[in-house]
Amino acid sequence: MILVGLALLFWAGAWWLNARIAASRHAGGRAARLAVPAIFGITILVVWEGLVRGLEVPGVILPPPSAIAARIGGSLDILWVDFVQTFVKGALSGYAMGCGAAVLVAVLIDRSPFLQRGLLPVGNFIAALPIIGTAPILVMWFGFDWQSKAAVVVVMVFFPVLVNTVQGLADTSAMQRDLMKTWSASYWQTLLKLRLPAAMPFIFNGLKIATTLALIGAIVAEFFGSPIKGMGFRISTEVGRLSLDMVWAEIAVAALAGSAFYGAVAAVEKGVTFWHPSQRR
C-alpha cells in the first residue's frame, strides 16, 4: 500500500508542478513545451510501476515498466530480427511501392477529368473501408513471408495517397496555369514546375497518413500467418504464452518505429514544402 500511496503522491506532485509551469510566464517557451509532456509521461510510468507493484498485479495481466525495460534490454537480438522482418522488409518496401504507384496513377489519370470524376468517389469510398480484411487473401496469394505483408501495405496506403495526390494536382489557381501558358510551357513542364510542387503539401499529407497504415498493415497481416519472426507473429504467440513483458517490448518497438517513421516523413515534408504557410514560423 505504501507504494500505491507514493505513486499517488508523485502524481499529485507532478500535476502541481505541471500546473505551475503552465501558469508561469515561461509557459510559451520551448523548454516548457518539452518539459510538461515529458513530466506527464514520466508520471504515467511511475504511477504504473507503483500501482502494479503496490497492488501486486500479476505479470500476466500487466507487467511493470521496469520489467518491460529489462525484457527489451535482454532480448535486443529478437527484437531486431522482428523489426527487420516487419518494418524494413514488410512495411517499408510496401510503403515505397504503394505510394510510388499511387502518385504515378494520380499523374496518369490527371489528364482525364472523366477518370478523375469516377476514380475520386470510388477511391474515397475504398479509403474508408476496412482494407485490413484483405490480409488473409493476400497472405494466401503471396505466401507467409514478407512479400504478402508488403502487398497488404501496398493496398492499404494506395488509396489515401492517390486521393490526396489527385486533389493536390488540382490545387493550382487559373492565374498560375495561365501564367505557365503565356510562357508556352508544355504539359510536362507545367506538371513538373508548377503542379507537382503545388501538390506537395497534399501528397505529404497522404504520405503521413500512410506511415501509420503501413505499420498497422504489416503487423496485422502477420496475425494471418507468418514465418517464425516478425512483430505481429511475436505479439500473437507471446500473448498465447502469457509472457506479456515481451508483448509490451514489441509494442514499445512498434511505437518507436511508428513515431520515427512519421517524424522522418514530416522532416522531409518540411524540407520540400518550406514555402507553404503551414511550415512558416
Binding site: 485490413i132 501509420t212 505499420l215 498497422i216 503487423i219 496485422v220 508483448v247 509494442i251 512519421y262 517524424g263
Partner: peptide, 8 residues
C-alpha cells in the same frame, strides 16, 4: 496517432 495501436 503515429503509433500502430492496433498491435495491442
Amino acid at each position: 496517432q503515429t503509433i500502430p495501436i492496433l498491435a495491442i
